Amino acid sequence: MRWLALAAAAVDREADRLTELDSAIGDADHGANLKRGFAAVTAVLEKEPPPTPGAVLLAAGRQLISTVGGASGPLYGTLLRRTGKELGDEPAVSRARFAEALDAGVSAVARLGGAQAGDKTMLDALLPAAEALGESFGAAREAAERGALATVPLRARKGRASYLGERSVGHQDPGATSSALLMAALDEAAA
């Protein structure tokens, strides 16, 4: 739960920046949508704390799907729900076990969105983060941040930004940026 509370705080703090990034290549609602969604996640988890890490992620994923509009709700909801489902009812989770579960969550996001690395999406941060998590939480954070920055020169091939074609080049992807925020919160929670 600490991870998601820290993620909610980061999204709240960075919502205007996320919306600004989204205004250049999207529909200018990414920050506001995630802020609303993670506030709802925090409220649900505080009201009735789930008993296991997997149950926490399942509940958070359901809440994001039901409160966040656009593609972000289903994508982030799928990430958390699939990760939680993979963890099952384990009462405590090692970093290695969490890395396996997160990898399954990231794969589910890729299937849902039909995207891959280099498409200028949240996967450009999540894929390297999931891989680096095998090494450490800090490595996952750094890989996600590098992945988000690496979206700047890319031409979007998926999502709303893909409608802009060449005009999407030169802008950092908001989904990759918010994914990097989540990985930074995970690193902070693990510290």
Rank of each mutant, 00 (worst) to 15 (best):
P128Q: 05
A161S: 15
G165I: 05
G54S: 08
A28Q: 08
A32Y: 05
V44M: 13
A5Q: 14
E14W: 03
V93F: 01
A117V: 14
A156N: 08
A10V: 07
E86R: 15
A129T: 12
L133M: 10
L112G: 00
G170K: 10
A5W: 12
A143V: 10
L123I: 11
L182K: 00
L21V: 11
A125M: 06
G175L: 07
E86M: 13
F38V: 02
V56Q: 14
A140M: 04
L182R: 03
M183Q: 01
E135H: 14
A185Q: 10
P74D: 11
A60E: 05
T78K: 00
R82S: 15
A8R: 12
H30V: 08
L112N: 00
A32S: 15
H30L: 10
E46M: 05
G73F: 02
P50S: 09
G134N: 14
R81D: 02
S168Y: 01
M122D: 09
G26E: 06
Q63K: 15
L164M: 13
A180P: 03
T78A: 05
P174L: 06
A191N: 11
G61M: 03
T19F: 00
E20Y: 08
S178P: 01
A15N: 06
T52V: 10
V109S: 06
K158Y: 04
L164K: 14
A156Q: 09
L127A: 13
R97Y: 01
H171W: 10
A140Y: 03
A96Q: 14
A92C: 07
E188P: 00
A43N: 00
G37P: 03
S178D: 04
M183P: 00
V93S: 00
P153H: 11
A150M: 08
Y163W: 14
A39Y: 03
K85G: 11
R146F: 01
D29K: 04
F137C: 12
T42R: 15
L149H: 12
G170N: 09
D16Y: 01
G37F: 02
P51V: 11
Q63L: 00
R141Y: 03
G118Q: 10
A104V: 14
P51R: 08
M122F: 04
N33F: 09
A189D: 08
K158C: 03
D22L: 08
L75C: 09
D16K: 13
Q172L: 12
S162C: 07
T52S: 13
L45W: 03
L126N: 13
R157S: 11
P74F: 09
G77D: 06
D29N: 13
T52F: 02
L126W: 15
A99Q: 02
L182A: 14
S136W: 02
A180W: 05
G118V: 10
G165R: 07
A161D: 06
A39C: 03
